[in-house]
Every structure is written in C-alpha cells, then in structure tokens.
C-alpha cells in the first residue's frame, strides 16, 4: 500500500530524515513513536507530499508520489490525513465538512454525499451534531468529525499525526475507540502517537524513529517487552514514567 525507499528530507541545512525505508501492507496498522523533533510528522507528511522529499522514492497505492507528474490530488484522497489540531473547516457545518471531499473530489452528487456523511457521523457517534458548527464541539468530538471527514473519501489508507495529543485526557478514549474500530474493520492506518497503550493493543507493527532514522521496529509484543535499542529503552522508560 505504501512503500518508502531511502527517504531523505532536509529543511535548509537541517537534515531531518536520514534514510528511511518502510513498507505498509494493506490492512496493516503501523504505529510510529519517537521523541519530539525526531521526524515522525515529516515522514507522514512526505507520504502525501505536504512536504516535498529531498530524495528517495515513495509509492502510495501504485502512484509514485515523488514523481512530479503524479496527480497528487487523487493520491491525497487515497492517503488522507488526520491532524493533531483537527483542522476542521470552521465556516461549514459538521456535515458539510464531511461531504465536501466526496462532492468536490469524488464527484458524488450531494444527496448521496449527505447520506454517506450522516452514516459516517453516526459511525463516530455524532449523528446528532450534523448541523452544528465545529466551534460548538468538544475536542474529542472535533477529532471524530475529522475522522469521519477522512472516511468519507473512502481512502485506501489514513495517516494520523498525533490525533489525541491536543485533547484533554478524558477525551482521548473516545477518539481511540473510533480508531480501534477502524483497525478492526481492516482500514490501513499509519499512526504517529504517544499512546503506548493504543500501539500495544492495535498496532500490527511499531516503529521507533529517532534522529531521522528507524531505530527499531517489530510486532508490539516483542517491541515493548524486549526493546533492543538503548535509545528506545530510554524513551520507553521516560514515556511510561509519565
């Protein structure tokens, strides 16, 4: 589904990603963990080319994202993103947030899109908020709308960049529940997260990035129980101490 080969990314003189290879299979849930500033978001943002990779190759659903000739708009709908800050469209109702993509990108007629939108809002537990505006929602509700907006595109994979990091602790659970359900339904997901519990429970594979490189990867059972890399051990020690 996603194949990243020898990805490098620099901002000016600062080399942030120093050669990353990653292969995500259909239906797989890959969690990326790592310290702040290690380049997790940058990897994710290279996948849908919100950032332009400096070198390397990224193939998403058969499309070469690193080829300038690729029509990125279609690829972005197939590999859509859920942001830490939700980034809902504040001037549109919740339902309109969800239907915009299907109508403008997928060319769905609006009646059909509304039906789909209401179904997806029901799925994330927010059917009754369809006609509210984002500012009338709690953080957890906003993020669930953002997930419904992503699902409305019927994407092949969803990229999550710390979807619960901006939430009050008591609202994290409701968002993780929705994500767990997606994982059970077989959605391909790449999730940057600090929620180790979620990674342990849901991930097929966990990846530790530090200093712009993958330092360790593996199935969650071995990854958390028996970390090899000293930096990972250190990182897990700090996270769990929190």
């Amino acid at each position: 589904m996603i194949r990243i080969e020898n990805l490098h990314k620099s901002f000016g003189d600062l080399e942030v990603i120093k050669g990353i290879d990653l292969h995500v299979r259909p239906g797989e849930v890959v969690c990326i963990i790592g310290p702040s500033g290690s380049g997790k978001s940058t990897v994710l943002r290279c996948i849908n080319r919100l950032e332009q990779p400096t070198s390397g190759r990224i193939i998403v659903d058969g499309h070469d994202v690193t080829d300038p000739k690729t029509n990125m708009n279609l690829v972005r709908a197939e590999a859509t993103m859920v942001f830490q800050q939700f980034n809902l469209f504040p001037h549109m109702t919740v339902l309109h947030n969800v239907t915009l993509g299907p109508v403008k990108v997928r060319g769905m007629d609006s009646a059909q899109a509304e039906k789909l939108g209401l179904e997806l809002l029901a799925k994330v537990g927010l059917a009754e908020k369809a006609h509210n505006y984002p500012e009338q929602l709690s953080g957890g509700q906003k993020q669930r709308v953002a997930i419904a907006r992503a699902l409305a595109l019927q994407p092949k994979v969803i990229l999550f960049d710390e979807p619960t990091s901006a939430l009050d602790p008591e609202l994290v659970g409701e968002v993780l529940e929705v994500m767990k359900q997606l994982a059970r339904e077989g959605m391909t997901m790449v999730v940057v997260t600090h929620e180790m519990g979620f990674a342990k429970e849901v991930a097929d594979r966990v990846i530790f990035i530090d200093g712009g490189r993958i330092q360790e990867e593996g199935a969650p059972e071995t990854f958390f129980a028996n970390p090899q890399n000293p930096r990972l051990r250190d990182f897990l020690g700090k996270v769990i101490a929190h």
């Binding site: 849908n48 919100l50 708009n73 279609l74 972005r76 709908a77 859509t80 993103m81 942001f83 800050q85 980034n87 809902l88 469209f89 001037h91 915009l100 993509g101 403008k104 990108v105 907006r149 992503a150 595109l153």
Partner: peptide
C-alpha cells in the same frame, strides 16, 4: 491558519479549490 490549506489539500482538493471553498470564505 495554514492547517486549513493542509486539511483542504489532504482531502484531495486542488490549491485553487481549497482557496475558493476553505480559505476565501
């Protein structure tokens, strides 16, 4: 917020569409 442009682009809208439906209003 630049996140609005990113969100628009992330659902597959073109730059022009994002400008028209998201940023300009």
């Amino acid at each position: 917020n630049p996140g609005q442009m990113e969100a628009g682009r992330s659902i597959g809208l073109t730059r022009t569409q994002t400008m028209r439906y998201i940023i300009w209003p």
